[in-house]
Design a protein around this nucleic acid. Sequence first.
DNA 1: GAAATATATTAGAATATAATGATTAGTCGA
DNA 2: TCGACTAATCATTATATTCTAATATATTTC
Lengths: 106, 106
Amino acid sequence: MEMIPAKEIHAAAEGLRGLAHETRLSVLCHLLQGPMCVQQLIEATGTSQSNLSQHLAKMRLMGILVNEKRGQQVFYRIANPAFEQLIMALKAIYCPGMCGQSGEGR
Amino acid sequence: MEMIPAKEIHAAAEGLRGLAHETRLSVLCHLLQGPMCVQQLIEATGTSQSNLSQHLAKMRLMGILVNEKRGQQVFYRIANPAFEQLIMALKAIYCPGMCGQSGEGR
DNA sequence: GAAATATATTAGAATATAATGATTAGTCGA
DNA sequence: TCGACTAATCATTATATTCTAATATATTTC
């Protein structure tokens, strides 16, 4: 029914790879609530500064996030609001029963 | 807004890893149209038998697909209809303008 | 039961991804 | 300019993923 055309499969798979990691997915979820600076994300995700910075760089280069420097802090936010739908779809699959989704497995 | 609780982040990230590959994503897309046997999937994806079989095994073990043997053929189908939403969300991000989505970036 | 067909499994090498620790580069205030 | 702070980058090692080729397991047909 809802196929992704072959041409876009590569981009979509790459995009999924950009989220297919606990830390990066966690970052995305936190940013759904609004922009945050790196400090806050370090605390929110419990990752080392270096490691988080590399994950943020990856998400930035992939176009998932955009950043903005304010003073000595760097704020990150989600580049495309459509990612929210993706998170909702993920929730429908992995948190069945806790969202207002109509149908859950079985 | 739509956060995934910390407990489920791991499962969701792992689930994303299960789709974060051209071949597996392509398989999922094809199966949206209905169950298919391995033969058909080999042709549809253009992958070698061995390689595809390994991808199918992974998706099966992860609970993304289920299979059913019929004679000497094995048919695969999507385990959870909720994956359709995920594909739609991906389309909204990577194929903007080609789906009936209400809002697309810019 | 031998040959053909459909699929799965295994082992290995190639490649990609991730984490750590050390270092670097701006920004701010004294 | 010095010291503290925030963030990025680099090099290295560790780990995971992917592909290929070979082989194994069923099933069907003869």
